[in-house]
């Protein structure tokens, strides 16, 4: 999370170009939305027992289980201008990169406002966004082969939320690329599709680079906040 915030800060200062970052978590982790109360949305006892760290994001939205072996997280920093000025339209545009990626994998995906992407009527991706003066950061998850048993155990979903979707369990509401393709796919396998999907959606050319020294240094400085109880338990 520190690295995502570093990208936002550095792009807002004009020190790095607009950037797409694709990554996986190790160990498996949970992120929670900026406004969520940690005990409401995470089974902390289960998380601690199973060595699953929990971290609060700087973005709103819901809690996400990031499976080390079954999920890809994307983050993107872009200048707030043109269509990206409007919050809802910016979600639509950036999420269309994921929709295109899933289509390239042979799946029929659909963006459902505010921030979801569904396949076969089930959520396969969720995104969250924050903004600074000139820059937005959007990050999100793509469920590739996530262990839904662990997801159900570590996340607490309000009864009202499940009821509103007409389901009783999380697994009735979410799906993964592997389930939809009916074959196992690894996070590494979907990364080229994501790059191509975002390239098409945004009409840009990506240049692959390793993290810069300034990105790494700022991310390290921010790490202290994301490790602190004060930040993660602020609500």
């Amino acid at each position: 999370m520190g690295f995502d915030e570093a990208l936002l800060v550095l792009r807002d200062r004009g020190e790095i170009p607009p950037t797409l970052r694709l990554y996986m978590w190790n160990p498996s982790s949970v992120t929670i939305g900026y406004f969520q109360r940690i005990r409401d949305v995470v089974n902390l006892e289960y998380a601690e027992e199973h060595g699953i760290p929990v971290v609060r994001r700087i973005t709103g939205g819901g809690a996400v289980y990031h499976d080390a072996y079954g999920e890809v997280t994307y983050s993107i920093v872009l200048d707030v201008k043109g269509v990206l000025t409007d919050v809802q339209e910016s979600y639509r545009l950036i999420c269309s990169g994921l929709v295109k990626a899933l289509e390239l994998m042979g799946l029929k995906a659909e963006f459902v406002p505010v921030n979801d992407i569904v396949v076969s009527g089930k959520k396969i991706s969720g995104s969250a966004q924050t903004r600074r003066r000139n820059t937005l950061l959007q990050h999100g998850t793509l469920l590739v082969s996530t262990d839904l048993n662990v997801m159900e155990k570590v996340l607490r979903v309000p009864r009202q939320k499940l009821e509103s979707h007409g389901v009783v369990r999380i697994r009735d509401r979410v799906t993964t690329v592997s389930i939809e393709k009916n074959k196992h796919m690894s996070p590494e396998e979907v990364i080229p599709y994501l790059i191509e999907g975002f390239r098409k959606a945004l009409g840009v050319r990506f240049v692959e680079e390793k993290p810069s020294l300034e990105e790494v240094e700022l991310a390290r400085r921010l790490e202290e906040k994301y490790r602190s109880r004060e930040w993660n338990f602020k609500r």
Binding site: F35, Q36, T59, G60, G61, V87, V114, N115
Partner: peptide, 8 residues
């Protein structure tokens, strides 16, 4: 005030 909404 908490939840899974967004505010900017």
């Amino acid at each position: 005030i908490s939840g899974d909404f967004f505010a900017y």
